[in-house]
Design a protein around this nucleic acid. Structure first.
Lengths: 141, 141
DNA sequence: AATAAAATTGTAATCATTACAAAATAGTAT
DNA sequence: ATACTATTTTGTAATGATTACAATTTTATT
C-alpha cells in the first residue's frame, strides 16, 4: 500500500481520527519518511517545527493511531517499538550493523501453518535480522 | 526441537554456560514448561524453591542465555518480552482472549522473499495474533 | 586452607511509558 | 460575536521494567 499521495486529513477522518495539527504532522512524518521511527525519533524530528510539542502527545497520538488501526507497531528489538503507517501485511528486516529497518514484500498465502486449524488469525507479523545488502557489500570491499 | 529429555547440565556446558544452580533451574523451567514466560513469571515460579533468588539473577541469566543463543526472545506485545528455549525457527500465536502463546510449526523455506537478495538473514521470526482454538470454540457455545 | 575468579544478590539509578490535572484549542449553541 | 462545552494538548509526577554497581557468597585453583 502506497500512502505517499493520499490526502492525510481525509485519510484520518475516514478512519475516525479528528485531524488536529499534531496528528496531521505525526502521521505525515510516518508516511513521508517510511523510516519506521520510534516515539523519540518522531518527537525529535517534529519538535523544531512544532516547538510546543509534548512527548506525551506523541505517545497519545500513536496509541490512538494503533487503536484505529492506521499504524502498526514493529517489534524487532527488545528495547524499542517502532511504528509503520503501512498496515498491510509485509515483513521487516533490521540490519545489525546500520540498524536500519527495511520493508520486505511478503506473500504468506501459501505458507503451511499446520496446527492453526480453528484458530482465528487477525494479525500476522514477520521480521528478519541480519546484515543488509549495503553493509554486506561494504564489508566485502 | 524437543529439549524435554536432554541433560540440561551438559547442554549448558556444551553451549559455554557454566551450570550454576540458578542457571540450571531457570533453563529447566523453560524446558519443562514451554509456556513462554516473561522474567517476572520465571522469578515468581522459582523463588519459593530458591528463596534467595534475585530478580537481577533472572535478568542476568536470560541475558547470558540470549548471548549464547540457547534462548530466543518472543516479542508479540509492546510491553512484554517472553522467552523460549526452543531456538529453532518456528512461529508463535498469542490469543487475545486467554493471552496464551502457542508454538506454531513453520516451514519458511518456500517463502517468497523478493527484495532480500544479497541480504544475510541470521534470524527469522514470525508471530500471529488472534483467537485460539479453545477460546474460539468456547465462544461459539 | 588460602587465594583468586566468577556468580549472585540487594539497592539504587535509569529510562520509557503512563496517569493525571491544568491549559489551550476547537466546536456548538445562543 | 459571545458564552459554553467538549476535545486535545501539555507538563509534571508516578509507575514499572530493566540496568548499573558494589558487596557478599559461592566456586574453582593453587
Amino acid at each position: 500500500m502506497d500512502l505517499s499521495n493520499i490526502n492525510i486529513e481525509q485519510y484520518l477522518r475516514n478512519n475516525d481520527v479528528k485531524p488536529s495539527y499534531q496528528r496531521l504532522k505525526i502521521f505525515e512524518y510516518l508516511v513521508k519518511h517510511k523510516n519506521h521511527p520510534n516515539v523519540d525519533t518522531i518527537y525529535q524530528e517534529l519538535v523544531s517545527a512544532i516547538p510546543t510539542l509534548s512527548k506525551t502527545t506523541v505517545y497519545n497520538t500513536l496509541k490512538l493511531f494503533l487503536e484505529k488501526g492506521i499504524v502498526q507497531p514493529i517489534l524487532i528489538e527488545e528495547n524499542e517499538i517502532r511504528y509503520d503507517a503501512d498496515v498491510t501485511v509485509h515483513g521487516h528486516f533490521k540490519c545489525e550493523i546500520c540498524q536500519e529497518v527495511y520493508d520486505i514484500p511478503l506473500d504468506l498465502s501459501d505458507m503451511k501453518t499446520e496446527g492453526l486449524e480453528k484458530f482465528i488469525i487477525k494479525e500476522s507479523h514477520i521480521y528478519f535480522k541480519g546484515i543488509c545488502k549495503r553493509c554486506n557489500i561494504a564489508n566485502a570491499q
